[in-house]
Computed example of a mutant assay.
Amino acid sequence: MEIDEWWPNLSDSAREWLIANNGDAVPATILDEIVAAGGVMNDEANWVGESGPDGFFLSDEATDWIEASANDEI
């Protein structure tokens, strides 16, 4: 499931956090909510970025999508 499919299933607070912190490492609680909302974490998902010592990051495509959504450009 891609970001435009699971985004509406997130809580308002999760969407607000993702908008306010776009590009930052995603906390485990938000990531858990994304997965529960239908976001499947695999290499084919356009929203999955890098994961490392600093945490999990959304892809550039996902951060661009969130910015566009926040600006009512979707």
Rank of each mutant, 00 (worst) to 15 (best):
M1I: 09
E2M: 10
E2D: 15
I3P: 08
I3T: 04
I3L: 09
I3S: 05
E5Y: 10
E5A: 14
E5L: 13
W6M: 00
W6T: 00
W6K: 04
W7A: 07
N9M: 09
N9W: 08
N9G: 06
L10A: 02
S11W: 06
D12V: 06
S13D: 05
S13C: 08
S13Q: 00
A14H: 03
A14P: 00
R15Q: 13
R15A: 00
E16D: 09
W17H: 08
W17S: 02
W17F: 00
L18P: 04
N21V: 02
N21H: 12
N22P: 00
N22M: 03
N22G: 06
G23F: 02
D24M: 13
D24A: 15
D24Y: 12
A25W: 13
V26A: 02
V26K: 02
V26N: 01
V26P: 01
P27N: 02
A28V: 12
A28H: 07
A28N: 07
A28C: 08
I30C: 01
I30M: 00
D32E: 15
D32P: 01
D32L: 15
D32N: 15
E33D: 11
I34R: 06
V35W: 01
A36L: 08
A37V: 09
A37N: 12
G38S: 08
G38F: 05
G39D: 08
G39W: 06
G39S: 11
G39C: 12
V40A: 07
V40S: 06
M41N: 10
M41H: 11
M41C: 11
N42Q: 09
N42T: 14
D43R: 15
A45K: 09
N46H: 01
N46F: 02
V48D: 06
V48T: 05
G49D: 05
G49M: 00
G49P: 04
E50L: 02
S51R: 10
G52S: 01
G52Q: 00
P53A: 14
P53I: 14
D54W: 07
D54A: 10
D54Q: 12
D54T: 10
F56H: 09
F56R: 08
F56P: 04
F57E: 00
L58T: 08
S59E: 04
S59R: 04
D60L: 13
D60R: 13
D60Q: 15
E61K: 10
A62T: 01
D64T: 15
D64L: 11
W65Y: 15
I66Q: 00
I66R: 00
E67C: 11
A68P: 06
A68R: 11
S69G: 07
S69C: 09
N71Y: 12
N71G: 14
D72M: 05
E73K: 10
I74H: 10
I74V: 14
I74E: 13
